[in-house]
Design a protein around this nucleic acid. Structure first.
Lengths: 313, 313
DNA sequence: GGCGATCACTAAATCGAATTAGTAATAGAC
DNA sequence: GTCTATTACTAATTCGATTTAGTGATCGCC
C-alpha cells in the first residue's frame, strides 16, 4: 500500500525556485531577514499548492521544544468547571498555534516524566500546584478572592448568609478530607464566613457509604443543633448529604439547607433539586493559556462564579 | 539560569569507548548485530551512570513515528467504564514502552489532524468508530455479544427477564437519541430481549427537563400499561426516569423497575438506590492496547459486565 | 571613488536519534 | 593455503526542520 509522500520544505523550495532557507524565512516571518513581496508570494503559493505543513517532530527537535502545552490535573476531582477550564485553555492555545494535551489525574511521577520527555512541551501547567502551595504556605497563585477558589467559596457562603443562616457546616468527602485542597477549602470557608459577619462554621466529614453518612449528619445535628445549612465541597458531596438526610428523615431546605459546588449534571435531577455554584472555568482556562505562552492574560472576568438557585438552599 | 545538559547517545559512546552506532545497537538490541557481552555491559553501565534516556523527538523523527498511541473518544459520553478503559489501555501501553494520549471528545476534525501531526502516533484508536460502523452496517468490531456493548446490554436485560418482566422500555436520552450509539443500543436491546424469549421492548425518549421527563413517563404508562420495567441507556438517563417517576408519584421498583448502565457514582446516592450494570472497561482497554501495537490481544475476559444489585430493579 | 549598510538571497550546520553500507580480523571448511 | 562466513565494530547518511554564517550586488553618504 503506497502512501502519498508528504510535501517537505525542500519541495516548496524546489517549486518556488528559492532555497529551503528562504522558504523557512518566509513561512516563519523570521525577524532580521528582508524578502521582497514577489518572492514571498511565490513561496506561499508553492506551499499552498503542495498543501505543505511543517513536520512537527522535526521542527520541535530543531527548536528544542514542541508547540504542545501540557496540562497536569494532579488529583483534582473532575467537575464541570474543570471541563470548562480545559475547553477555554484548548481554544486559546489553538488560537496561538499550540496544542493542549491533558495529563491524566491519578498517574504517578514516572508517567508524568514520560509525558514530558515524549511531548517536549513548551510549557507545563500544573492545575493543582497553586492549590497545594496555597494549602502549604498560603501563597498560591490561583486567582484567590478575585477569580480563584476563595472567590467561589465566597459566592457559595454569601448565598447562605443572605438566606439568614448564621451557623453552617462545610461538608467534605471523607476520603478526600486529608488532601491539601480540602484543607484549603475549609480555610477559605472560615475566612469567608468571618468576613460575612456570621458565626461558626463546622467541618462535616461525609463518608461514602449511605449508612455512615446518615450517622454523620445525625451527629452534626446532635452536637451542633444551631447549624441550619451545609455548604458542600462539591455537588457529589452535597448529594451524599441529601441522601443521608433522606435516610435520617430530614428535608432540605426546611430542616437543613444544602448548597453544592461546581454545578454538576445531577443536581437538577435530584429531589429536591440541588442549589449549586456555577464556576466560569472557561475564562480561567483562557487566561491560564495566555500565561503559559507568556502573553498578557488580561483582566480576570468577574463575577467568576454565580449561584444556581434550585430547591435545596 | 543554566540547565544541566541531558546526556546524548554520543556521550554514552564517549564514556563507553565505542561508536554511537554501537551504542544504538546495544540499547535497541538491534537484530543482525553481534555484540560481545563485555561491550554490552560497558554500554549499559555508561548509559546508567549518565542517566541516559533517548531523546524522544529525535527518535520519532528518525523512526517515522513516535511511541504514542492516540485514543480518540469521539462524542462518547464519559462514564465509569470509559475511565476503566483508559486506565487499562494506559497501563498496557506503558508496559510496552508506549504512552497513551487521549484526544478529547467534542473537538472537530481540524483539532484531530493537529493532534496527529503533532504527536505522530504509532497508532490511533478510535473508540467510537466501531460503534458507528456497527450502527451503519452491523459489522463493527466492538466485542459484540462476547465482551462488547451487545454483551453488556444482554447483562442488563437478562436481569429484568430473571425478575419476570416481559414487557420493558429502553430509556434513551432525548438529546442523544438520534446518535448512532443510541440506535445501536436499541437494536442490541431488541435482539437481546428477543433472545431472552420475552416480548415487546419499547423505546422511551427521556428529555432533560424534569417536567418533560415526567410527561414522557406518564405517556409510556398510558400507551403501554403492560410495561413493568425500564432499562436505561446509562445511569444518568436512569436517574432522569427515577426523578420523573418521583414527580409523577410513582415508586420503583413497585410501579416500574429501573436499571441503569455503566454504574456511575450517583446511583448509590439516589433513593431508592439505583440498580446498574458494572462494565469491565479495564480489560477491554488492555486488549485494545495490545491490538493497537499489533500484539495478540488474548482471549476476552468474561463476564465482561455484571449487575450491581440495588433497590430500583 | 571608496566605504559602510542594506538587500536578497545561499551553503552548511545543527538538533539527536536510527539505519545503511561498509571494513578488518578471525575462524572454519575444503 | 584459499575461500567464505562470522564477528565486532565504524563512518556516513538520513529524518525535516530551523538557525548560523556567510556572499555578491546595490545604494547612499562623505
Amino acid at each position: 500500500m503506497e502512501r502519498a509522500r508528504r510535501a517537505t520544505l525542500k519541495d516548496v523550495a524546489r517549486v518556488s525556485g528559492v532555497s529551503p532557507t528562504t522558504v523557512s524565512f518566509v513561512l516563519n516571518d523570521t525577524p532580521g531577514q528582508t524578502i521582497p513581496a514577489d518572492t514571498r508570494a511565490k513561496v506561499f503559493e508553492a506551499a499552498r499548492s503542495l498543501d505543505y505543513s511543517p513536520h512537527r517532530l522535526a521542527r520541535a527537535l530543531r527548536e528544542g521544544s514542541s508547540r504542545v502545552v501540557l496540562l497536569k490535573l494532579g488529583d483534582l476531582r473532575p467537575g464541570h468547571s474543570m471541563d470548562g477550564f480545559v475547553t477555554g485553555m484548548r481554544h486559546e492555545l489553538s488560537r496561538h498555534g499550540h496544542t493542549l494535551v491533558v495529563h491524566p489525574g491519578g498517574a504517578g511521577p514516572a508517567l508524568m516524566a514520560e509525558f514530558v520527555a515524549t511531548l517536549a512541551p513548551r510549557a507545563v501547567v500544573d492545575l493543582a500546584g497553586p492549590y497545594q502551595q496555597a494549602a502549604t504556605d498560603g501563597n498560591g497563585n490561583d486567582g484567590g478572592w478575585v477569580d480563584g477558589l476563595a472567590a467561589h467559596t465566597m459566592t457559595q457562603l454569601a448565598h447562605l448568609a443572605t438566606r439568614g443562616h448564621s451557623q453552617i457546616a462545610l461538608a467534605l468527602p471523607d476520603e478526600a478530607a486529608a488532601e491539601p485542597l480540602a484543607g484549603l477549602r475549609l480555610r477559605h470557608a472560615r475566612e469567608a464566613w468571618s468576613q460575612l459577619g456570621s458565626q461558626e462554621l463546622h467541618p462535616l466529614h461525609v463518608p461514602a457509604t449511605a449508612h455512615e453518612a446518615a450517622g454523620a449528619v445525625r451527629t452534626l445535628r446532635v452536637h451542633h443543633p444551631q447549624v441550619t445549612a451545609v455548604a458542600a465541597f462539591d455537588d457529589e458531596t452535597a448529594l451524599r448529604v441529601l441522601a443521608a438526610m433522606a435516610d435520617a428523615g430530614l428535608a432540605a431546605p426546611a430542616d437543613l439547607a444544602v448548597i453544592g459546588f461546581d454545578d454538576g449534571p445531577y443536581g437538577a435531577l435530584w429531589r429536591p433539586t440541588l442549589t449549586s455554584v456555577h464556576i466560569d472555568g472557561e475564562s480561567f482556562g483562557r487566561r491560564a493559556a495566555r500565561e503559559a505562552l507568556g502573553i498578557d492574560p488580561g483582566a480576570p472576568v468577574t463575577p467568576a462564579s454565580t449561584v444556581v438557585q434550585r430547591q435545596s438552599a
